[in-house]
């Protein structure tokens, strides 16, 4: 049984603004599904419908075996939610918030206290557990938010841009936790605008743009679909670009070289690579300053499907 299944899911806001325009999603139990898209693509609206905070205006969705529109309370019992911008009361301590969440999930106080200690330890906040959340850093807040979402050991966890705006250390801490959830068999629906995050963490990725899913599959399959890798060459002074293109012709067809590069060849056989190119250039007596193998990224996939680059991709890459 699918942990999440949406069919023709739509959401139109007042004024006729269509945020989500009939999407189909199926996420298997235990799968980590990366939902990738730029700001305003419809990611958060989709998540809010799946976690019962927003009623769909069309289509339907079943989460953890229950319809989000008709069995909302059953859905809420089975899911964990960490929404965008960790909404935490700054006047409460981390421990108090987890205990409150445990009580709202129907746990008795003693159980809530025990679970809060366990989760605070797990997300590395045990030493800050009795401090007010207002004094937490952004990373600490996101980890606390994640701990609150896990308080009742949900079978499906929704993480809406859990690492947006975080420094690399905090981002890696969240990634580690998601990886642990993967090992524990929790289904995770992860929205992100960071390509690397989706690439590294998700078993499958759905790319949303303007309220529609434009591509879906494993990161590797999507990248392969987007095309073969290519090599980019910077020649030493005195070596001719035309001669280099001719000598590299057996490897594939020439494509426009990127900025600062002299020659680019799309490889016709992905098994060939830099070593073959160096050998051919050497045999032709051409001297090479730099050569690199460029594999397609999810950003290339996004570019191919939507005609534009994904916002935030560069920022995330820079921070790494």
């Amino acid at each position: 049984m699918a942990a999440i299944k949406a069919s023709g899911l739509e959401r139109t806001f007042k004024g006729g603004i269509k945020a989500v325009r009939g999407i189909d999603i199926e996420v298997a139990e235990g799968e980590i599904y990366g939902f990738l898209g730029p700001n305003g693509a419809g990611k958060t609206t989709t998540v809010r419908m799946l976690v019962t905070l927003l009623k769909p205006t069309g289509g339907n969705a079943v989460v953890a075996g229950f319809d989000v529109a008709h069995d909302a309370s059953q859905v809420r019992r089975r899911i964990g939610v960490a929404l965008q911008e960790a909404a935490l009361d700054p006047l409460m301590t981390g421990r108090e918030l987890i205990i409150l969440q445990a009580t709202l999930q129907g746990m008795i106080k003693a159980e809530g206290r025990e679970r809060s200690a366990e989760l605070l330890e797990r997300v590395g906040l045990i030493n800050a557990s009795d401090r007010r959340v207002g004094g937490y850093s952004g990373g600490m807040k996101r980890r606390l938010d994640l701990a609150m979402a896990l308080v009742h050991s949900p079978s499906v966890l929704f993480l809406d841009e859990p690492t947006t705006g975080l420094d690399p250390t905090s981002r890696f801490a969240i990634w580690d936790e998601v990886d642990r959830l993967r090992r524990e068999g929790t289904t995770v629906f992860l929205t992100t605008q960071y390509l690397e995050e989706a690439d590294q963490m998700a078993d499958r990725v759905g790319i949303i743009a303007d309220g529609l899913i434009v591509a879906e599959g494993t990161p590797e399959a999507l990248k392969a679909e987007s095309g073969a890798p290519h090599i980019e060459v910077v020649l030493d002074q005195g070596s001719s670009a035309e001669a280099a293109e001719r000598s590299l012709a057996p490897l594939g067809e020439p494509i426009p070289a990127g900025e600062g590069h002299d020659v680019a060849i799309r490889l016709s056989d992905s098994a060939t690579g830099v070593a073959d190119a160096v050998r051919l250039l050497d045999e032709s007596g051409l001297s090479v300053a730099e050569i690199e193998l460029v594999r397609p990224s999810l950003d290339d996939v996004f570019m191919e499907k939507t005609g534009r680059r994904l916002e935030g991709a560069a920022t995330a890459a820079d921070e790494q």
Partner: peptide
């Protein structure tokens, strides 16, 4: 203020 900061959504998303 709870509505503005999103804490209200957390309560609404709880099974209560």
């Amino acid at each position: 203020l709870e509505l503005e900061m999103g804490f209200f959504d957390r309560l609404v998303a709880a099974p209560i």
